[in-house]
Design a binder for these strands. Structure first.
Length: 454
DNA sequence: CATTATGATTGTTA
DNA sequence: TAACAATCATAATG
């Protein structure tokens, strides 16, 4: 209702101006307060139609008069007078102070819609997106099922949003061209500079964009409601997908000496684990950090995970040994290659097929090689060299594997190869807590408990 | 149904 | 302020 009234008002300025020679239309564009509180979205087409008919009527009514005026012999003189008057008064009009500052609110809405996937790229339809997400998170069939509902609703919103947006766009264009035609037509009777037309168009566009903002706002609202409901339904804790824990564990155990991922790393991990907003929003939606809760939350989820992991690992390492070995072995092959590359140790035995001997590759000869590599690494170049964290992590993994497979744990454990980092030799981040030495109670240092068979 | 695993929260600390 | 430690609540498991 309100909108309609205002649009009419805007147009009223135009048609009125035709009668009152005062070019003072739009001195105060009906833009003063955009309190677009009325949530009801008006059918623009309807409004347009009304407007059209109204103007048509007035045109019809004025047709004869206008014709007469145009043909009047005094017309040119009158016109020039009008022009003169306008020239004098017009200066005050064109206080074109509006420079289209990108409305922050609008930008916020846009960003949010983009983040929620409402306004972004097509994504090939909801179901495909859901499938992709499911595929991305590995065998997380449970997740995909739970998300499918959410996603379908989201696509619904998306569709509505797009059709509405398109409708508005179209209506805006129609209306604009109509007004422009009108003004052009009137410009024969009264002086209207192109600039004025431009300004009018600007006003119209602003008007419509404010309507669009309403649409965006309510769409955002809908998404929020949907999400909150979705989350409410599963406020309960959800376990991460298998793959996510894989990734996290991999990182954890390959950085066992310093399992404190940087913010960047956390973000990276979150991305890799495809931790979704639905998981992440659980903890953030209480206080309205609605701004960046789409991307800041996931890494705090990762932080949670690492916090829990560290403390629980430390609590009883024995329980985690198996897992540690598993993940260490998992990355050991690549680690070996990476280290080899870093050391420029080109004479390794398997340049081809990295995994050729993978499953059984942690028998003596191989691990011996690795150990040597590490020795050299540790011996001279590691400390000051720029080999860096990357290699360090690999060494972590290697050491672990080797300690398990070849029973070098004693030698390695006693060897404070990580002292440069100010860390305990075995990855005790804080206090004495040495994986290798803890291995001993469980298996004994010399127990060549063959992982290979496993 | 009891137990364990696990993600999140809360309060404390350096 | 991030990490820790304790704890809660629920999922997973047997």
């Amino acid at each position: 209702m309100d909108e309609q009234a205002r649009i009419m008002q805007a147009l009223g300025g135009v048609s009125l101006a035709g009668h009152s020679v005062q070019g003072g239309m739009g001195l105060q564009p009906p833009h003063g307060h955009d309190g677009t509180d009325d949530g009801r979205k008006q059918d623009i087409g309807d409004i347009l139609h009304q407007i059209m008919t109204i103007t048509d009527q007035s045109l019809d009514e004025a047709q004869a008069k206008k014709h007469g005026l145009n043909c009047h012999r005094m017309k040119p003189a009158l016109f020039s007078v009008l022009c003169e008057i306008k020239e004098k008064t017009g200066l005050s009009i064109r206080g074109s102070q509006e420079e289209d500052p990108p409305d922050p609110q609008l930008m916020r809405l846009d960003n949010m819609l983009l983040a929620e996937g409402v306004s972004g790229p097509e994504k090939g339809g909801g179901s495909a997106a859901a499938a992709a997400a499911a595929a991305a998170s590995g065998g997380a069939s449970d997740n995909s099922i739970e998300h499918s509902d959410y996603r379908s609703k989201l696509t619904q919103i998306r569709q509505i949003y797009h059709t509405e947006l398109e409708k508005y766009e179209q209506a805006c264009n129609e209306f604009t061209t109509h007004v422009m035609n009108l003004l052009r037509e009137q410009s024969r009777t009264r002086p209207i500079s192109p600039k004025e037309i431009e300004r009018m168009v600007g006003i119209i566009h602003r008007k419509f964009s404010s309507i669009q903002m309403q649409l965006k706002q309510s769409t955002c609202e809908a998404v929020m409601i949907l999400r909150s409901r979705f989350l409410d339904a599963r406020r309960k804790r959800r376990n991460f997908s298998k793959q996510a824990t894989e990734i996290l564990n991999e990182y954890f155990y390959s950085h066992l000496s310093n399992p404190y991922p940087s913010e960047e790393a956390k973000e990276e991990l979150a991305k890799k684990c495809s931790i979704t907003v639905s998981q992440a929003a659980l903890q953030t939606d209480k206080r309205e950090s609605s701004e960046h809760m789409a991307d800041s939350a996931p890494q705090s989820v990762v932080s949670n995970w690492f916090g829990n992991k560290r403390i629980r690992y430390k609590k009883n390492i024995g329980k985690f040994q198996e897992e540690a070995n598993l993940y260490a072995a998992k990355t050991a092959v690549t680690a070996a290659h990476a280290v080899a590359a870093a050391v420029q140790n080109s004479q390794t035995n398997s340049p081809t097929t990295p995994n050729s001997g993978s499953s059984g590759s942690f028998n003596l000869p191989n691990s011996g090689d690795m150990f040597l590599s590490m020795q050299s690494l540790n011996g001279d170049s590691y400390q000051g060299a720029q080999v860096g964290v990357n290699v360090q992590s690999q060494v972590d993994t290697l050491r672990h594997v080797i300690s398990q497979t070849a029973g070098y744990s004693e030698a390695l454990g006693g060897n404070t190869m990580y002292s440069p980092n100010g860390l305990n030799a075995n990855g005790g981040w804080h206090d004495a807590m040495t994986p290798s030495s803890v291995i001993s109670p469980t298996e004994g240092p010399g127990s060549v408990h063959s992982d290979t068979s496993n």
